[in-house]
Design a protein around this nucleic acid. Structure first.
Length: 478
DNA sequence: CGAAGGGTTCTTAGGAACCCTTCGGTGCTCTAAT
């Protein structure tokens, strides 16, 4: 088959981007495939093109309803009418109608939660599914074990259609994530297509400061004197709101974004950032997935994320246009305490697990049983998943493992932040990669000399723009 | 655990010093009550 001709016919492109052709070929061969392609490499083409070239429906499992809606809108805009998203946006009656007409659709988007429902499975099993796609597949590791257990149930559906190829797409996967994907998607010796995660145009800096207010002052100076658009990641919703307010006071066009805001506000803010109306976003880790903005110049971490993989995901949102971009992480000793608290707080404690499962064994309905414990809604759902597979003692051990793993990930992150070795090299080695050519603007540990490029488009900054990085930092810290 | 904010004390009427309490991330779906 002449894939280039098909590419032209369906998408109007003259050539594939790196990795795409290989992925498409594996999928068309009917092989299970894991594609690890950096952001902006056109992952959706990896299932859309095979979809057109094969019989049967393409089922795409997607983590966010907003992301599904965006993709459906995009595909419809490109002339594809046979596409639908199955999620809670559909009214009950609309869902009934759609479910009975599923064979009209070529591309069906669905959340893991919806996929786990018996009703959905019944309808989907009537279809001939040609390909199952798991978009943002690292969510299996990131969320499956302690947040959205239905991510671990995807494999149960897949095992009912054993000869259908499965394609997992992600921008970041270390060995453990690759193993989790293989296992929980019941993949059979998957083909792995991997492009380097090294983004040469991103320069990494870590700055150690002593207090919260020093961080605030640094950010204010930085935003006032350099160019956006940019994202500032914080570790709490409150902090994101405060920062946005401080920057607004300076006349910076800026909004905060986190899960505490209602869905409408969130999509408005995202839209404004997308259109360039907003220069800066102060956000928790709720912001970013599925944000297709090419010219983000800066990603500032007011507080470090809890894993290196998260860090690389967040930082990777900068510079999709290939132009130089800055990633700056502000670190204050003891910052890890908050992160530690957050990641451990939601893991159910042993007493809660034993109490809850005891009630279940007495025949009490799970919803009622949860009321008698201090379990969070998330905690309850996580245990409900493990109860199906494990004994109580095993669950307790499993949760301990999860906690230890998270702790280990955080320690890795902390090592990256506090090391005086090359940040790029350290981060890449976490993904089993080494680099060959060091870019001029590598990282603060290798030495960043000029930040002139960060002032492009700003007027009246010529004097500052020729200051060296170190001089500037010294000045900022006064 | 540590930061931030509200309240109280102390000493003398504005503010510093301290104690105590609260809060801290990610998303899906459905149900019941307005």
């Amino acid at each position: 088959m002449d894939l280039i001709r098909e590419l032209q016919r369906h998408f109007g492109y003259e050539q594939f981007r790196p990795g795409q052709r290989e992925v498409v070929e594996h999928v068309l061969e009917g092989e299970d495939t894991i594609a690890i392609l950096p952001t902006g490499m056109g992952k959706s083409l990896c299932y859309q093109l095979p979809g057109y070239l094969m019989t049967g429906t393409v089922l795409i499992i997607s983590p966010l309803v907003s992301l599904m809606e965006d993709q459906v809108t995009q595909m419809r805009k490109n002339g594809e009418k046979r596409v639908i998203a199955l999620n809670s946006f559909l009214s009950y009656s609309a869902r009934e109608i759609v479910m009975n007409e599923l064979n009209h659709y070529k591309f069906i988007f669905i959340s893991p939660e919806m996929l786990a429902r018996k009703n959905s499975i019944g309808h989907l099993k009537k279809l001939t599914i040609g390909l199952v796609v798991v978009d943002e597949a690292h969510c299996i590791s990131q969320w499956g074990f302690d947040f959205r257990p239905d991510y671990l149930r995807i494999g149960e559906f897949i095992s009912t259609i054993p000869s259908t190829p499965v394609l997992a797409l992600t921008a970041t996967a270390d060995d453990k994530v690759t193993m989790d994907i293989t296992r929980y998607l019941q993949m059979d010796k998957p083909a792995i297509v991997r492009q380097s995660l090294d983004r040469k145009n991103i320069s990494y800096s870590v700055l150690q400061l002593d207090t919260q207010s020093a961080k605030l002052e640094w950010i204010k100076e930085r935003v006032a004197n350099t160019t956006g658009p940019g994202i500032i990641y914080t570790s709490s919703r409150k902090r994101a709101d405060q920062l946005a307010m401080e920057l607004q006071k300076m006349g910076v066009s800026c909004q905060s974004y986190h899960a505490g805001k209602d869905q409408d506000d969130r999509s408005i803010i995202q839209g404004q950032f997308l259109s360039g109306e907003l220069q800066w976003i102060c956000a928790t880790n709720a912001f970013g997935m599925g944000i297709h903005i090419n010219n983000i110049r800066q990603v500032i971490h007011e507080h470090m994320p809890s894993t290196i993989a998260d860090y690389i995901q967040e930082v990777g949102r900068a510079g999709r246009d290939g132009l130089l971009s800055a990633a700056t992480l502000l670190y204050m000793p003891s910052d890890e305490r908050l992160t530690e608290f957050i990641i451990q707080a939601d893991i159910p404690r042993e007493v809660e697990v034993r109490h809850y499962t005891n009630l279940l064994h007495q025949g009490i309905e799970s919803a009622d049983a949860a009321k008698f414990t201090s379990l969070t809604e998330t905690g309850k759902r996580v245990i409900d998943y493990y109860v199906e597979k494990l004994t109580v003692d095993e669950i307790v051990l499993k949760l301990k493992d999860i906690a230890e793993e998270k702790d280990y990930q955080l320690k890795k992150m902390l090592t990256l932040v506090t090391s005086d070795k090359c940040i790029r090299r350290n981060a890449l080695s976490y993904f089993g990669e080494s680099y060959n050519v060091k870019p001029a603007q590598c990282c603060s540990n290798c030495g960043l000399e000029e930040i002139e490029w960060l002032f492009s488009g700003k007027s009246g900054q010529s004097e500052q723009s020729i200051m060296s990085w170190d001089e500037r930092i010294t000045k900022l810290l006064g």
